[in-house]
Amino acid sequence: MTAIDREAVIDRAAGALMGAFIGDALALGPHWYYDLDELRARYSEWIDGYTTPMPDHYHAGMKAGESSQAGVLLRLTLESLAERGGYDEADFCRRLDEDFFPQLDGSPMQGPGGYTSQSIREAWRKRVQQGLPWGQVGGNADTTEAAERTLAIAVRYALDPAALADAVTRNTVLTQTDGTVVAMTVAFGAVLGMLVEGHTLDASISAKLMARVKTGALPFHTVTSGNLQAPKAGSAEAPTAGRFPSPDALLTQSSIARAARDPDVRIEPAWKASLVYGMPCAVYHQFPAAYYLAAHFADDFESAVLHAVNGGGQNLARAMLTGALVGAQVGLKGIPRRFVDGLADHAALLALAGRVSPR
Rank of each mutant, 00 (worst) to 15 (best):
L151A: 05
A154V: 02
D142I: 12
E148V: 14
Q130C: 07
G138C: 09
T144F: 04
A141R: 10
I153S: 05
V155L: 01
W124T: 00
G131L: 10
Q130V: 02
V128I: 15
G131S: 10
Q130A: 10
P133E: 09
G131Q: 12
Q129S: 05
P133G: 11
W134G: 10
A146Q: 08
D142V: 08
R149M: 07
I153T: 06
G139W: 01
T143G: 15
D142K: 07
V155Q: 00
G131N: 13
E148R: 12
A146L: 09
A147F: 11
A141H: 13
L132G: 01
Q129K: 12
A154Y: 04
K126H: 09
Q136H: 14
W124C: 00
A154L: 03
L151K: 02
E145L: 10
P133Y: 06
E148N: 12
T144H: 08
Q129M: 07
V137Q: 07
R127E: 03
W124N: 03
W134K: 08
R149T: 04
T143Q: 15
V155E: 00
R149Q: 09
V128G: 06
D142F: 09
Q129F: 01
T144V: 13
I153E: 00
R125E: 12
G139P: 04
W134T: 14
P133I: 11
R149E: 04
D142W: 10
Q136Y: 14
L132A: 02
T143M: 15
I153P: 01
K126E: 12
L132M: 09
G138S: 13
G138T: 11
L132E: 05
W134F: 05
P133N: 05
E148C: 15
P133D: 12
N140H: 09
E148H: 10
D142E: 05
G135I: 06
K126A: 04
V128L: 02
Q130K: 08
Q136F: 11
G138D: 10
G135P: 08
W124E: 00
Q130M: 10
Q136W: 08
R149V: 01
A152S: 03
T150G: 01
A147T: 04
E148M: 15
A147M: 13
G135E: 12
G138E: 15
T143W: 11
A152M: 06
V128F: 08
L132Q: 12
V155A: 00
A154P: 04
Q136T: 09
Q136A: 11
A154C: 04
